[in-house]
């Protein structure tokens, strides 16, 4: 067990242990502080007994690292949304007003960009 655990004055509720006389301060801890403390404890355990396999404690799916490739279903879903389901009607075919502008260095920029991957 790491030094941190031996020196720790607090249990997870944030209350001072009754039998400890070295520290008289009682500090209430919020959830973030508790999580930080818990992480330090886990790290201390992992470093002290590094030859023993320790299972990671995770809070949600994201941390579990779901690396399943969902791009196929996303693409199918995108295609289904592009399909027109409702009968639409409008009083226009083309939209947009027009602005014109000139650029001095357009050709040199296109040259640089055409060499990029």
């Amino acid at each position: 067990m790491g030094d941190y655990l031996k020196k720790s004055q607090f249990d997870l509720s944030g209350k001072k242990k009754k039998d400890d006389k070295t520290n008289q301060v009682i500090m209430p801890l919020d959830n973030n502080a508790l999580n930080t403390v818990a992480q330090i404890v886990i790290n201390a355990i992992k470093s002290d007994i590094s030859n023993i396999k320790v299972q990671n404690i995770v809070a949600n799916d994201e941390k579990k690292g779901d690396n399943f490739d969902d791009s196929r279903s996303l693409s199918k879903l995108a295609d289904s949304m592009i399909m027109q389901r409702n009968k639409n009607e409008s009083n226009f075919n083309e939209l947009g007003n027009v602005n014109k502008s000139k650029k001095k260095d357009a050709d040199s920029t296109i040259d640089i960009l055409s060499k990029l991957d």
Binding site: L95, G96, N97, N99, K100, S101, K102, A106
Partner: peptide
Amino acid sequence: VSRQSKDGTFVNKFY
């Protein structure tokens, strides 16, 4: 939407 005309002018359509 922007396109470049053959004379190099940018024609920008906006909505």
